[in-house]
Design a binder for these strands. Structure first.
Length: 818
RNA sequence: GCCGGAGUGGCGGAAUUGGCAGACGCGCACGACUCAAAAUCGUGUUCCCUCGGGAAUGUGGGUUCGAUUCCCACCUUCGGCACCA
């Protein structure tokens, strides 16, 4: 094995040693430095669930490697870490084990901090944040108050999704699946009416659709765009016979003359008034059924249309026709106005409803080229645009203008206007939970909801509470906590007992990293001016429609208050994929396919785990773990160790071509590694490095000791440093260097050395490769073609015939077409 | 149903975006070292073959001198949304 004077590669020992040394040297302190360009690399902060799992390693270590690469490129890099420490799992776990959520959470943080340190990442631990710390949530509460003062936080009674097991309100995004179950525990959710706090994220719907100037993955932009769900149409007001307005949103104002009935959501406020006595019983029954339906598991997608007639009528404002008003659960109170105009001829859902309840179908659009539509013959709706028919004064309007003319017409009539509707709803932030930041509001009999004065923040979360589930907000049950006085009049008053959604905490954590101990405000403006915006944000795609929309909204809202600057908080976003178990299934304890990083680090060392995670899959795709695959990476690092450290066995006579070809390979590799770091293509960084090591090991007997060899070793270690920081530091020092490798500059490509002097020209006949010839790289077209035609291999296939065409692709191939 | 990914050897994956398909690694086979094994090193490894070649990147078509790459249709699969008016 190793020669006597070369130590064995012992990852455990050197990793521990260097981690301590780096900490002692303060190697990774990131401070403002006006003489250097900043780079803010942010990775999504973990939730302290107990142990760091392989997914954390997969998200964090390649991000760390890239941050290190940026640092070696001269940037002053900030790569901070912290813990998203409030939230439901702490309460669930605490209940199960009968320990206080705070105890559980902070114990987990201590363990995970140690595990994070074992990664050897370049975190500046002075900047660590924990969102459950008082010094943190003081400012979460402060932001709530700013949003409140600027009219962006409001309270309303609202039917909310409620998990009967977790006893908490769920956001729409926390209710998943066709059966609408709780994201965390899988229990089907029920509805409950509660007074809740909301943020007006919908004010920013339009701006959130604009991704100009930020480099975010297409996928995330599409997810967010669909989530916001913009549609253009018109708001049109129908009137009941009693004169009450029923406003509807339609994307097809051109079909207004085709309305044959209206449908209200069962919860619509006008239902009671519209319902005639003889329909009362039916309507009430239907509303009850509909409510239960949302309570019980909902049936599959192709549910039969259901509904009942209220007995009431409305007047079509454009035609004056008398329109029957129905209620049905396919109309949702939460989208649009909770009422629709039904045009069965041109909308499939309305069509099915009309057929089922024998309501009339009236054709008002005749698509060009198809036979004249006859309502009684139709088997489905015809949603296409076309010239208007049976449409009063608009009859004959061509399809490309009918939308616009219809909007103009209802506007003139005073019966409506063009409108934009969004699927996005305001952000519900109230949680009837203990382990969160208390909402800093005081309710006074005289003054209503009063924000807690800023100098009284934080509103501290009491520790002596009953945090086990009772169905009430735990803070409500505390004997004294809620009792306080009104900040305005001093009269006895009560605190809000709900806490905030943890997405609120994570909407601004990137700002707190800037100055975690700052007490004059949420962040030190000096730090903000230097570090913001975030240059690269990395994390999971699962946050596309939650955290990543909330944090954009937050930034924009704060910008409008003059707290932040610029249109967006994060300039570039990249998502990593997921590491699956060896069985290609999602890792889970019940499947028994969980890969524990701690064990891997023990067995192979952190460097190997880091490199393997970068190597085994495309980072944005992820894939199944392979316990055999990691051996290949481990072998490679051992090879790096011995190849660079063991003295050459034979006395090398460095011949010129060997030196040249080594230098060429080194600089070509440097070029691709540099490019791949920029583009997050981590897997090909490792394979290029492996390839170069294979080459170096091969030529070592010839060139070891030469200047070219020393240069190769130097560049190799610097390229390795971001990926595997410990082994590269150790070899670097064993080779006699004194200063840390992590303070070295990224090497520059020597373009002359990298230049290929000879190339392999592929010679094809009719598109099939028949020969490969070595030619000078700068060969011109004439010579290349001539050389190709001279090839004996080619002659065999030409069979004496004359080429019809000869195609030359510079530096690549000649294709002879017969 | 709609939107968006993905489909390449036994396996994970590469391919400068229209130009040598299968880099790199795993696995496997053979060899060297060893009494032996492990480790290490070396060689080979898409399939078929009559050893001349031929076929092949989910399937079928198209454009092109040339297609993993572009276009059309379809299949499989993974995510997201879903009675959105």
């Amino acid at each position: 094995m190793a020669k006597p004077n070369v130590p064995n590669y012992n990852p455990d020992e050197i990793e521990r040693k260097w981690q301590e040394q780096w900490a002692a040297d303060g190697l990774y302190k990131s401070d403002i430095n006006d003489s250097r360009t900043k780079f803010y690399a942010l990775t999504m902060l973990p939730y302290p669930s107990g142990d760091l799992h392989i997914g954390h390693w997969y998200a964090i270590t390649p991000s760390d490697a890239r941050a290190r690469y940026k640092r070696m490129n001269g940037f002053n890099v900030l790569f901070p870490i912290g813990f998203d420490a409030f939230g439901l799992p702490a309460e669930n776990a605490a209940i199960k084990r009968n320990i206080h959520p705070k105890t559980w959470t902070y114990a987990n943080i201590d363990r995970m901090r140690g595990q994070l340190k074992s990664m050897g990442a370049m975190f500046d631990w002075r900047r660590e944040i924990i969102s459950a710390d008082e010094k943190y949530y003081r400012w979460t509460q402060w932001f709530f108050i700013q949003l409140y003062k600027h009219g962006l936080a409001y309270r309303k009674m609202s039917p909310v999704d409620w998990c009967p097991k977790d006893h908490t309100t769920l956001a729409r995004e926390q209710v998943v699946g066709e059966d609408r179950h709780c994201e965390r525990c899988g229990t089907p959710v029920i509805k409950k009416d509660l007074e809740q706090w909301f943020f007006r994220i919908t004010n920013y719907a339009e701006e959130l659709l604009n991704f100009e100037g930020i480099d975010w993955p297409e996928r995330v932009r599409t997810l967010q765009t669909n989530w916001i769900g913009k549609s253009e149409g018109a708001l049109v007001t129908f009137k009941t016979e009693a004169g009450d307005p029923i406003e509807v949103f339609t994307t097809r104002p051109d079909t207004l003359w085709g309305v044959t009935f209206m449908v209200l959501a069962p919860e619509h406020p006008l239902v009671q008034k519209l319902t005639t006595p003889e329909n009362q019983a039916n309507v009430e029954q239907y509303i009850m059924d509909a409510q239960r339906q949302s309570d019980i598991q909902r049936e599959a997608q192709d549910k039969e249309k259901s509904g009942v007639f209220t007995g009431g009528y409305a007047i079509n404002p454009v035609s004056g026709e008398r329109i029957p008003v129905w209620i049905a659960d396919y109309v949702l109170m939460t989208y649009g106005t909770g009422a629709i105009m039904a045009v069965p001829a041109h909308d499939q859902r309305d069509f099915e409803f009309a057929r089922k309840f024998k309501l009339p179908v009236k054709v008002v659009v005749q698509p060009g080229g198809s036979p004249v539509l006859e309502p009684e013959d139709m088997t489905e709706a015809v949603p296409a645009a076309g010239a208007l028919v049976n449409s009063g004064p608009l009859t004959g309007t061509p399809g490309d203008r009918s939308f616009k003319r219809a909007v103009e017409y209802v506007t003139q009539l005073g019966a409506g206007k063009g409108a934009t509707n969004y699927r996005l709803r305001d952000w519900l932030i109230s949680r009837q939970r203990y382990w969160g930041a208390p909402i800093p509001i005081i309710y006074c009999k005289t003054h209503g909801a009063v924000p807690v004065p800023e100098d009284q923040l934080p509103v501290k979360l009491p520790e002596d509470v009953e945090w086990k589930p009772t169905g009430e907000s735990p803070l409500k049950l505390h004997p004294t906590w809620r009792k306080t006085t009104c900040p305005i009049c001093g009269a006895p008053a009560e605190r809000e007992t709900d806490t905030m959604d943890t997405f609120m905490c994570s909407s601004w954590y990137h700002l707190r990293y800037l100055s975690p101990d700052f007490s004059e405000g949420p962040f030190d403006p000096k730090e903000y001016d230097y570090w913001m915006p975030v240059d690269t944000y990395t994390g999971g795609i699962e946050h596309a429609t939650m955290h990543l929309i909330y944090t954009r909204f937050f930034h924009k809202a704060l910008r409008d208050m003059g707290i932040t600057e610029g249109p967006e908080p994060m300039l570039q976003l990249r998502n990593q994929g997921m590491v699956l178990g060896e069985d290609s299934e999602k890792m889970s304890k019940s499947r028994g396919n969980v890969v524990a990083p701690d064990n891997l680090v023990k067995a192979y060392g952190a460097d190997t785990v880091r490199a393997y995670l970068m190597f085994f899959a495309r980072w944005d795709m992820g894939g199944p773990w392979s316990s055999g695959g990691i051996d290949g990476v481990s072998r490679w690092l051992h090879r790096v160790w011995t190849t660079l450290l063991e003295p050459a066995s034979a006395s090398g006579k460095a011949n010129e071509t060997a030196v040249k070809s080594l230098r060429r390979k080194v600089h070509q590799t440097l070029r691709t590694v540099t490019k791949d770091f920029e583009t997050f293509e981590f897997n090909t960084i490792i394979s290029a490095m492996m390839e170069l090591m294979n080459e170096m090991a091969k030529v070592k007997p010839e060139v070891a000791g030469s200047a070219a060899w020393n240069e190769a070793a130097d560049i190799y270690l610097k390229m390795l440093a971001p990926v595997t920081p410990h082994i590269s530091e150790e070899i670097w020092h064993l080779m006699g260097n004194k200063k840390s490798i992590h303070l070295q500059a990224w090497p520059k490509v020597d373009e002359v050395a990298a230049r290929q002097e000879e190339i392999t020209l592929v010679v094809q006949v009719n598109g099939k490769v028949r020969d490969r010839i070595i030619v000078p790289a700068d060969i011109d077209e004439e010579k290349a073609k001539a050389a190709a035609l001279e090839s004996e291999q080619v002659h065999k296939f030409l069979e004496g015939g004359k080429p019809r065409q000869v195609i030359y692709v510079k530096g690549r191939l000649v294709n002879i077409v017969m």
